[in-house]
Amino acid sequence: MMSGNSSGAASAVGGDGRHDDDAALTEFLSSLMDYTPTIPDELVEHYLGRSGFNCPDLRLTRLVAVATQKFISDIASDALQHSKARVAAPIKDNKSKQPKDKRLVLTMEDLSKALREYGVNLKHPEYFADGPFTGTDPPTREE
């Protein structure tokens, strides 16, 4: 499958009947120069260099950054949906949690639910304390 992929890439490079695709590709790559991803280029370059990727082209770095940002924001939006669903669920008899739930806070339960769909098995031991105030209710650790 993989070799097939690469051979397909080679054939696509060699193929010259798809000028529209090439134009779209060039346009997309040039649009990446104007798009500033949230993940800084330096971070991406650092970790790409550590993984053995070397390419001086800034557009490829930007492409990696955009892909990573898309990955993370997809997960985040899924987790947001989970969080909203959890808030909208009928409230149990715990009255004290009500004002806290007004704010949308990313928790490990929502995150792990969202990540499961992306193939990331997040095993979060529930008895591990997040911070010194986890057991006590009011303060939520925010970033």
Partner: peptide, 27 residues
């Protein structure tokens, strides 16, 4: 995305995931 806040462990996990994603992609 729309979140107001996050647990520390969740954001740690996500940032770790970011780094691993970049590394995997580079590899």
């Amino acid at each position: 995305t729309g979140f107001d806040g996050s647990r520390k462990s969740a954001i740690d996990t996500l940032s770790d995931l970011t780094i691993r994603y970049i590394l995997s992609l580079g590899k």
